[in-house]
Design a protein around this nucleic acid. Structure first.
Lengths: 124, 124
DNA sequence: GCCTATAGTGCCCAAATGGATACTATTGGA
DNA sequence: TCCAATAGTATCCATTTGGGCACTATAGGC
């Protein structure tokens, strides 16, 4: 979701970036495209739970924002490849940082959950 | 907006992190709190265009997700301080990366806009 | 009493988001 | 003809998001 324009104060580049990558599935789409160009179906297989509808929608949005490119090949069955644009490639440090934090946060949450389970024996 | 649970595939930590920081104003709030604890009014002054309503709402959400803490002092007028939690502090590399990318993207966009303006003289 | 400072809360609403469901188009093979 | 592969599109809907607007509470000063 691109944020509606608002006065630019010191932190607003943060919001600018977030506004381009924050729709559900966008982050993980960008993550997978870092490995190289992928087709629609391959992306779908890598993203359990996503609907065609949502994949199409988010890919179109990312393309609109010039973060990815879409190449249509004159073939049947249809063949369309999606790849990071140069701008999208430059997002690598962002995606890496998001992934690293998410992993550590997940691990910390699991440690907490385990500690809570150990402190409260089952009542059943 | 915390993303609804979905099957965890390799990239999902990216989505996990984004889900915690992607509401409008959250990124820039976190950015400002990196300087140290701030009060509601000070935050508001640093964020031109934000309403009380939105500031309160996003602060509450960030607190709910344990990214920030809220300290109430027994004073009149009311004094409440918001600060990054340890978890919130660990988001620094994320915020920095988002900011860096946003700045370079903004600069690139301005260069493009300038080039377009130079190529298309005013018609009026 | 009124105003100021501070930090909110309640209610309402338009727009955006995420998604379910059904359907579409082109070939080639059985 | 039917089915498979591929990559969508159209329509509808429930929920969420961002925000406008009005009001609240506690003291202290004029």
């Amino acid at each position: 979701m691109k944020r509606s324009q608002f006065d630019c104060a010191p932190g607003c580049p943060v919001e600018l970036t977030l506004g381009l990558i924050d729709g559900k599935w966008k982050g993980v789409i960008l993550y997978h495209l870092q490995d190289g160009p992928l087709r629609f179906g391959e992306l779908r297989r890598r993203l359990p739970g996503i609907t065609q509808r949502m994949l199409t929608k988010q890919l179109r949005a990312l393309e609109q924002d010039a973060l990815i490119s879409r190449a249509v090949f004159a073939e049947v069955p249809p063949r369309v490849e999606y790849a990071l644009s140069p701008s999208g490639h430059s997002l690598r440090p962002v995606i890496d940082a998001l992934k690293a934090w998410g992993e550590s946060h997940r691990d910390a949450s699991q440690r907490e959950a385990r500690a809570a389970a150990a402190a409260a024996p089952a009542i059943s």
